[in-house]
Amino acid sequence: MNAPGTSRRWTPTPLIGGAVAVHAGALASLAVAPGAWPWAAGGVIASHLALTAAGLWPRSSLLGHNWTTLPESAGACIAITIDDGPDPDVTPRVLDLLDAHRARATFFCIGERVRAHPRIVEAIVARGHAVENHSQRHRHNFSLMGPRALRREIEAAQATIGEIAGTRPVFFRAPAGLRNPFLEPVLCGLGLHLASWTRRGFDTRAGDAALVARRLLNGLAARDILLVHDGHAAQAPDGAPVVLAALDAVLRAAADRGLATATLREAIAG
């Protein structure tokens, strides 16, 4: 597999190839026997449902390669990935927490927020963390976009983050993890690799930091990719972003288990 950051040739997955074959077969059957249209339509509909289901499953590799765990070469490392920032209130506090634990993380940032808070992004990089692509605008309809719209959205974030962070991203995470079959060819052309996660804390919804930490720590093992948020972070009853206490508990537990942290770039390149 090509290293992240290097453009590569797109190869359809078996699911996508099968869907193309179903469409071709449906057209051929209609040309020969127009009365067979109910069967042809049924096959096409079934293939579309399968593609949609694959796109709604963030950890799926049915639409293309997807980093859900670190490679074996990462050893006793985990990756902390932090989405939806930068946030002017939460992100600096997350950075201080990471410093206190001597931990490194990967921030999947939204291009518009990077443009709005460039000093925070510079601080992320200066403190030894990585900044990756989480789209330019984090649109709710991202998974419904066609190939041209996807490319514009992702390229815009590449340019924004590359300018401000000083290094262009090599990983991409789809908004909410949702995608469609057009995404992987776009990522291949841009040299980006899709990354999802092994486990997540749902810290944008739960106001209980202990619950978020338990979700992240349940079965925690080497090579896991954890997902938390500095943007859209839920608040505890005292008004504190739950990500702070939850991440503190996770990093303490990881250290007790002999697990180090690394950015995705470090873990996968190693």
Score class of each variant (00 low, 15 high):
residue 210 A to C: 09
residue 50 A to G: 13
residue 230 D to S: 11
residue 113 R to Q: 13
residue 33 A to L: 14
residue 196 S to Y: 03
residue 114 V to Y: 04
residue 243 V to S: 02
residue 221 A to Y: 04
residue 18 G to N: 10
residue 99 D to S: 10
residue 233 A to Y: 02
residue 146 G to D: 13
residue 67 W to F: 14
residue 242 V to W: 00
residue 42 G to E: 07
residue 27 L to W: 09
residue 198 T to D: 09
residue 94 V to S: 02
residue 182 F to K: 04
residue 72 E to P: 11
residue 172 F to D: 03
residue 175 P to M: 03
residue 75 G to T: 07
residue 120 I to T: 12
residue 174 A to E: 07
residue 183 L to S: 00
residue 176 A to R: 11
residue 24 A to L: 14
residue 251 L to S: 05
residue 267 A to S: 12
residue 99 D to P: 04
residue 240 A to D: 12
residue 209 A to D: 06
residue 73 S to Q: 15
residue 266 E to Q: 15
residue 184 E to R: 09
residue 132 E to N: 06
residue 40 A to L: 07
residue 233 A to F: 04
residue 5 G to M: 06
residue 51 L to P: 08
residue 155 E to P: 01
residue 20 V to L: 14
residue 25 G to F: 03
residue 23 H to R: 13
residue 116 A to I: 06
residue 29 S to T: 14
residue 192 L to D: 02
residue 39 W to G: 15
residue 93 R to L: 08
residue 121 V to W: 00
residue 155 E to F: 00
residue 113 R to A: 10
residue 157 A to N: 08
residue 9 R to E: 15
residue 136 Q to W: 09
residue 100 A to F: 01
residue 20 V to Y: 08
residue 233 A to L: 00
residue 79 A to R: 03
residue 120 I to L: 14
residue 93 R to F: 00
residue 240 A to H: 03
residue 214 R to V: 00
residue 154 I to S: 04
residue 238 D to Q: 12
residue 258 G to I: 02
residue 23 H to T: 13
residue 183 L to I: 04
residue 260 A to S: 14
residue 118 P to T: 02
residue 37 W to T: 11
residue 183 L to H: 02
residue 160 T to G: 05
residue 190 L to C: 08
residue 41 A to Y: 11
residue 181 P to S: 08
residue 79 A to Y: 05
residue 72 E to S: 15
residue 111 G to C: 08
residue 149 A to M: 06
residue 137 R to L: 14
residue 20 V to W: 10
residue 238 D to I: 11
residue 67 W to G: 03
residue 236 A to E: 09
residue 182 F to L: 10
residue 222 A to V: 06
residue 98 L to Q: 01
residue 187 L to Y: 03
residue 35 G to K: 13
residue 205 R to D: 07
residue 136 Q to M: 15
residue 120 I to G: 01
residue 250 V to S: 02
residue 6 T to E: 15
residue 216 L to V: 07
residue 173 R to N: 05
residue 163 E to H: 09
residue 139 R to N: 12
residue 244 L to W: 00
residue 100 A to W: 04
